[in-house]
Design a protein around this nucleic acid. Structure first.
Lengths: 136, 136
DNA sequence: TTTTAATACTTCAATATATGAAGTAAACAT
DNA sequence: ATGTTTACTTCATATATTGAAGTATTAAAA
């Protein structure tokens, strides 16, 4: 594998998604149910289109995403979805949410989610996983 | 907070540790028990000293690490350790390990750890947490 | 007391990556 | 044909990363 810095399991994941944007793309698709370039670009963090394009290409080539052409409205229409490899990154996002729930006073998490992050993190992960796999 | 892109809990963690190196520094200190600049720099990923220096400064200013002067051998001696905020990032590393255990055929994880990642991830997290808090 | 060795950095020029603004192209409706 | 929507690309600028080399501090050895 090119660009692999070591055989450490943590390093390998960081080789794939270790930057400021990639996991937000995974969040948009896998947690927020966004599946188009425009919807992802419209997220509040305002990823620049060139950066989004580059990240989508990397995620596709690492088989964390699929891209399929769809028809319907005007303009080009593509649908991005997580592969199983991509879905399996969702637990990383959930532990990040858990950190922010504990340590970031500004973080926006519903009361119910906050409770589940403390008491039923496995349930959150299983729920996200099932939803995301269904959206493939 | 400066540099915060949104109030999303995932985005906030990525504002703190979203790059190729920062979580490897957390790994070295919190999982591998390394506490000096030199030991961290000697890890197989070979972080350049200027990068390590920059990352340590960021981690210190975000209160994920502490730095204390120690005496003993020759040269300057400092000891880096995780704060509780830093320790609470270890679950993120564990879920990354879990991903690699599933999806990276080259990843180096002991048979016992592999089994626990499947069956007792909470136990792994609690164990790491206690060790890391003791090493503060 | 000078020298040596060890540790923890800093400096700097080169390279790589990220960004924002603007432009292009394809599909469809009118 | 024209306009609108979507999905990008292009490019110049800004920022970040890298590797090699150098500096500073401490303590032990000669």
């Amino acid at each position: 594998m090119p660009g692999k810095r070591s055989d450490c399991p943590v390093a390998h994941v960081l080789d794939l998604v270790g930057d400021r944007w990639t996991l937000l793309v995974i969040r948009d698709i896998g947690v927020l149910g966004k599946h188009s370039f425009g919807d992802i670009a419209a997220s509040p963090e305002k990823i620049p289109p060139a950066t989004l394009s580059a990240r989508l290409d990397l995620l596709l080539s690492n088989e964390l995403l699929t891209k399929t052409e769809v028809s319907g409205g005007p303009g080009r229409q593509y649908r991005y979805a997580l592969t199983e490899r991509g879905v399996d990154l969702l637990p990383v996002l959930v532990t990040m949410m858990q950190w922010s729930a504990r340590h970031d006073p500004d973080t926006i998490i519903s009361r119910g989610m906050r409770k589940r992050l403390k008491e039923d993190i496995t349930g959150i992960i299983d729920g996200l996983r099932e939803t995301a796999l269904r959206e493939q």
